[in-house]
């Protein structure tokens, strides 16, 4: 128990140090490098909290794809961040943020305690899902089974979104002019 707390404290302090330096650096490419490192420590943190699926997502999306997307976006940006001067409107915005954040934290006291086994969430269905998903569906991962099959009807919209995204990828990848360009390239090569 103590050792787990020590490991988590170590990881959290790493994340804090990296986050402070992310705020501090003015060069955008260093920010991206540090952000990749940050999400890698976050993945380690999720592993130590036993949330393996989340760690998997964090490692592949947070550290991988988003880093590369940031880099691709960076090529359209100036290389250095401009230092912004303090504005009077900022105080207004800051106070609104603090107010709403405080209200949300206050509201969170009404929620049931995290991890309490008497919570309504853990009383019904969950045990059924955990015990039965392997036999009902035949997919070993419970999270995948719930997302893709049990919730198939109430996430019908989500399924449509994913289907549209896949279709868009195929449309982008499908090269409409491929045959003609191939012919023209071949012609050019044969001319040479």
């Amino acid at each position: 128990m103590i050792t787990e707390i020590i490991i988590n404290a170590f990881l959290v302090s790493f994340m804090l140090v990296i986050a402070l330096f992310i705020v501090n650096t003015r060069k955008v490419i260093f920010t991206i490098l540090l952000a990749g490192t940050y999400s890698l420590v976050a993945a380690l943190m999720f592993v130590s909290l036993d949330a393996v699926d989340v760690a998997f997502t964090e490692a592949s999306v947070g550290a991988g794809i988003s880093t590369i997307l940031f880099l691709a976006a960076l090529s359209f940006l100036p290389k250095e961040e401009v230092q912004e001067s303090f504005n009077k409107n900022d105080i207004f915005a800051l106070s609104i943020c603090l107010l709403i954040g405080g209200l949300l934290i206050w509201a969170s006291y009404d929620l049931p305690m995290v991890g309490n086994e008497n919570n309504p969430v853990h009383q019904h269905l969950v045990s059924d899902f955990i015990e039965g998903s392997k036999n009902h569906i035949g997919i070993p991962n419970v999270v995948t089974a719930i997302l893709a099959s049990y919730r198939g009807y109430d996430t019908f919209g989500e399924t449509i979104v994913i289907y549209t995204a896949g279709l868009a990828v195929f449309i982008l990848l499908y090269n409409r002019t491929s045959k003609e360009t191939n012919k023209s390239v071949k012609n050019e090569i044969s001319k040479k």
Binding site: I29, A43, F56, T67, I68, S75
Partner: peptide
């Protein structure tokens, strides 16, 4: 859960090469 480290090994390589390519050419 070693799968995560496999994913991370792949991502680490691709990320490093992407950063270097961006630094070389200014675009991806």
């Amino acid at each position: 859960f070693i799968d995560i480290s496999i994913v991370y090994a792949l991502i680490n390589f691709i990320g490093t090469v992407a950063v270097l390519k961006l630094f070389d050419k200014g675009k991806l």
